[in-house]
Design a protein around this nucleic acid. Structure first.
Length: 198
DNA sequence: CGGGAGATCCTCT
DNA sequence: GAGGATCTCCCGC
């Protein structure tokens, strides 16, 4: 955990993530995602949009049971589930709930708060509003790849963590259907702080 | 600015 | 062998 992140606030403990995804999802809004790569480049962003996926949810990767890819979703909460989407982009999720239950929250958008120059260089050519306003874009901005599969977000020693800087979750989050899925569209498990759905 | 299509390849059946 | 928890570019308006 980078020293620069220490001043942002305490790391969220595993117990905090050990509740059902839709519950954690709303509270995860306004928390801070922090990452540091091998070159000691630190970037941080405020989480502004997430989606919940649970085991009995036909849209979830865990709906079919345990597989090699989704294994980490059945493990302890507070871990990072990374997968390759459409053969091109990575998507990052935070594992929630009890161990043995396959659920997670897809990180859909963050607003950069630290390391903006590093993010701009990773997302070269994009306007500031397009730096991390999507699950694939977010992973590029934070250099999240499969090497971070299973990373412990609750450990201060981890290259990627989630901290609480004291900002409250929004009192009236926007709630709506999840996007990009063909099943489970009727379940309103997309959560967002105020602003436009991107 | 909004809609549509292509890219691209891994995962599971 | 099919189908994606997406993004970007290129059109047309």
């Amino acid at each position: 955990m980078p020293a620069a992140a220490d001043r942002l606030g305490p790391v969220l403990p595993e117990s905090w993530f050990q509740r059902d995804a839709p519950v954690v999802g709303v509270e995860l809004l306004n928390k801070i995602l922090v990452s540091q790569n091998a070159a000691a480049e630190v970037v941080a962003g405020r989480i502004v949009e997430v989606e919940a996926y649970t085991e009995d949810d036909p849209a979830s990767h865990t709906f079919v049971g345990r597989t090699q890819r989704n294994e980490v979703m059945f493990g302890p909460a507070g871990r990072l589930y990374v997968y390759l989407s459409y053969g091109i982009h990575h998507c990052a999720n935070v594992v929630t709930g009890s161990t043995g239950v396959g659920q997670a929250l897809l990180l859909r958008a963050v607003v950069p708060v630290c390391g903006i120059e590093t993010i701009r260089s990773r997302r070269r050519g994009r306007s500031d509003s397009e730096l991390a306003n999507g699950p694939g874009k977010l992973c590029e901005a934070f250099a999240i790849g499969l090497s971070l599969y299973g990373a412990d977000l609750t450990s201060r020693a981890s290259p990627i963590t989630i901290v609480d800087d004291g900002t409250e979750p929004p009192s009236s989050p926007l709630i709506g259907p999840r996007v990009g899925i063909s099943k489970g569209v009727e379940t309103p498990w997309r959560f967002r702080v105020s602003g436009r759905m991107s």
